[in-house]
Write a protein that binds this DNA or RNA. Structure first.
Length: 306
DNA sequence: TGCCAGTCAATACA
DNA sequence: TGTATTGACTGGCA
């Protein structure tokens, strides 16, 4: 029942009828609840916390290309950084000059964080008032440039603010999510969309997703010129192989299936093995499809409640 | 083995 | 056309 006060609405009654009809129970919803509760005893309440591991691969191919382009022009453009900025000074490039916070020279804070090990982290405000002075950069190698985006941060990143800054920049500069996600983050548009709509607090992120925020954080410290250089590089598709693959149509649960599954989910979001098997048989779907439905629902509900 | 977070990618939606 | 949603997959963990 969806109503908070326990009074059934017409929609509830209709939904119940549909559930009964589709699940094939001649009894009541209570029967489904009973099955769902049986499922609870099957160990579905076990919770595990995951450790993160390897950070994202660096932006090697993109940055390699930037540097190749500039290498070809090197004879005529001494003291030019990977973004084509001329240097007028004696300083050679280093990560500090290239807009890194001093704290970023320290060890990374990216690492697996278990819930039980959670500790309050102090969020460092994102300092947009300290743009990179691109004029002092020169002789930058690909690994140095790569270091910029993947450069570790010592303090917690304010994920909401970082995402907000990135989105504002994208809007102001007419850059869409797809371009930014693929060229800067090396992620898909959909992934960036999910992250940016509801960014989890830094301390709750595991290493892989922290790495994405580190990239955004470091990205925001580049000058507009530097940002655009990266955004406008030739697309080196990481998905070349994938593009050649056959398109796999995505299955969508029918309205009726959704009614039943959501009805059960509202009663018990962790149905047991038997109930999942029963539902799979009823809908002629696989066990994994039903299992994944509940898995995804739980995860997304949890995220949206952050 | 099942759950989880992270992620991809198809597609629904505005 | 750009963004949001979501089914499905992967690898790590206990």
């Amino acid at each position: 029942m969806n109503t908070a006060n326990g009074v059934k609405t017409a929609m509830d009654i209709e939904e119940e009828a549909t559930i009964k009809e589709l699940v094939g129970k001649d009894g009541s919803l209570e029967e489904i609840v009973e099955q769902a509760e049986t499922g609870l005893e099957d160990g579905f309440l076990d919770y595990f916390l995951d450790d993160g591991e390897t950070p994202e691969d660096p932006l090697c191919h993109l940055l390699d290309q930037i540097c190749k382009e500039n290498a070809g022009e090197k004879d005529n453009k001494e003291n030019v950084d990977p973004f084509g900025n001329r240097s007028n000074g004696q300083q050679s490039y280093n990560s500090v000059l290239f807009g890194l916070y001093p704290d970023q020279q320290a060890a990374s804070s990216i690492g697996p964080i278990r819930l039980k090990e959670k500790k309050k982290m102090v969020s460092k405000p994102y300092d947009l008032a300290a743009p990179v002075d691109a004029s002092v950069h020169r002789d930058v190698t690909a690994p140095e440039v790569r270091h910029i985006l993947d450069s570790p941060v010592a303090d917690a990143i304010d994920t909401k603010r970082t995402v907000g800054d990135v989105n504002n920049w994208l809007k102001l500069n007419g850059v869409n999510q797809t371009k930014f996600a693929e060229k800067v983050l090396e992620k898909t548009q959909g992934h960036f969309s999910v992250i940016s709509r509801n960014p989890a607090p830094w301390e709750e992120l595991l290493a892989p997703e922290k790495a994405v925020f580190v990239r955004m954080h470091n990205w925001m410290k580049l000058s507009d010129e530097e940002k655009n250089k990266i955004l406008n590089t030739e697309k080196v598709s990481m998905k070349k192989d994938l593009q050649e693959k056959e398109k796999k149509p995505r299955f969508t649960f029918s309205k009726e299936q959704m009614v039943v599954l959501m009805g059960i989910y509202e009663i018990n979001d962790r149905p047991g093995k038997e109930l999942i098997e029963e539902l799979a048989a009823k809908f002629s779907l696989s066990f994994n499809q039903i299992k994944d439905f509940f898995l995804n629902r739980r995860r997304r509900a949890k995220k949206s409640n952050l």
